[in-house]
Design a protein around this nucleic acid. Sequence first.
DNA 1: TTTTGATACTTCCACGTGGC
DNA 2: GCCACGTGGAAGTATCAAAA
Length: 513
Amino acid sequence: MITHIKDNKLEWTCKVRVVEKRNIKDSEFSPNKYRPYILQDQVGTKVFAMANSRDIDQVDRVLDLNKTYNISNAVVLPSKYNVPPPSPHYKYIWMLSRQTYIEKAPESDQIEILNGQEDTVTAFYEFYNLIGTKTPINFMAVVLEKMPREYISVRETAKTAYDFTIVNEEMKPMLLTLWGDFAIYQGKQIISVLDSGRFPIILGKRVIVNNFNGVSLSTRFDSIFEVNPTNSKSETLKKWRDDSIDLLKRYIDLKTYKNALIALAYPPGQLKTKVVDIPEMNIQEKGVWVEVDMRIIDDAPSFYIGCDYCNRKVCGPEGGNYRCLDCGNPHARAEKKYKIKVELTDETGQIVGTIFDEDFNRLLQITNTIHRSRSIDIAKLQAKLDEKKFFCEVRLDRRQFPGKSKQTYTINGVCENVKVSQSVSVQGNDEGPSTERSIIRTLTFDEALEEHEGIINPAIEERSGGNDEGTSIEGSNIKTLSFDGAIQQLDGNINPPLEEGSPQEKPSKKRKT
DNA sequence: TTTTGATACTTCCACGTGGC
DNA sequence: GCCACGTGGAAGTATCAAAA
């Protein structure tokens, strides 16, 4: 047992499983490098082990993740630092080197993982409620593509960071940002799989949920990843992936990651805040949802020219191709980015906020106004907005501009508030079981398609895929976006996911009222 | 030799000083 | 001697990446 090993005076052998291999790191106080490992014995005690500069490569070739070894006579040192060890009662560190006797245990004699709790995978629909909480979570997903951003400008420096779009088996899309070493090691590994034409499965541990792009995942210093993990949980996801390749490719073309907020927050299920209460609330990280009328304040939609990926302004011609110096996007396209001021009103008060490009385009889609038209008639648009109520997420804008007199708000995730004929639910803040999941409701962006009442369509299968006029996505027969973020394929040649727990499978099992 | 973020900002506390 | 207050360093914590 690990707990019996406290010095180097005795000859010892201990059977352990490699439960974590962390990335190689630079030593804080010397020019050396080290690689940390976490080993676990049969009773669940964990030990922090590491290999140093000149031994890393050799030790690494022997120790495989999730395999069991008999390790003898490693150098054992007391931990000098205040950082909690992986098992609080064992404050020693094992130094692994070329002198360490490491023997692979036979397949019949492997240590099974004992601790279920810390390996629990968090479901995507819980992510929205975890924004800004810094809670480390685990997740498993299919990686769709690498996004063009190469780095993030943090203050005066550019920090390496790669974004990937990922989806789960409910086709909920979102971004995963790998910072620093994670971009260099795991990022490159993922890219090489993607480059070979396959979509890897990724198991991530101890990542946090951020509000970038509405909702996204981001690494912490101690995050770990497994690309194409070999455990039983991943088999189901793998099978689903292999059955859904065409749908995944379609998702890439449609840039569905831009719908992450609507997909993961599920606006109809969110608690609505009254407008009058907003100024009193701290809503920087995760906003609050309101149910409002919308009035456009600007006479004409204002815009700027910016990077098609990171939205940052560039002083260049619209349509130009360039390298974005703000995010490193090597094939950036200078696009018109809309930005309009609107007034949101409910029965308690009103508030002024800004709607940026993505949500402005959503507004145009909702009102069936021609996408990216050269001149948008605000009066006509307003007339269409007047017929509707909207769900929006409101966040406090923490940026201070010169001459900014009062607090401003940013309006995200704009979608139409339509009557929901059946009650639907979403995972709330309570710790309810995950089976209390909503059924898919389809939000139509194409008003002409059906009468208004059909905008929420409970029965996807009943829809016919015939009339494609007015669809907002050119050359595609996809025309609806569910609140769950899944673009529905209507011609039926792709099977929707029907895994256990998928919304279609058990539409109304346990619904909250 | 070798240790799980770095940094900017905030809060806390010991200590010094001056007034009473 | 006690208290209020200021100061500096230590300790703790919040932030790091939206768009003008």
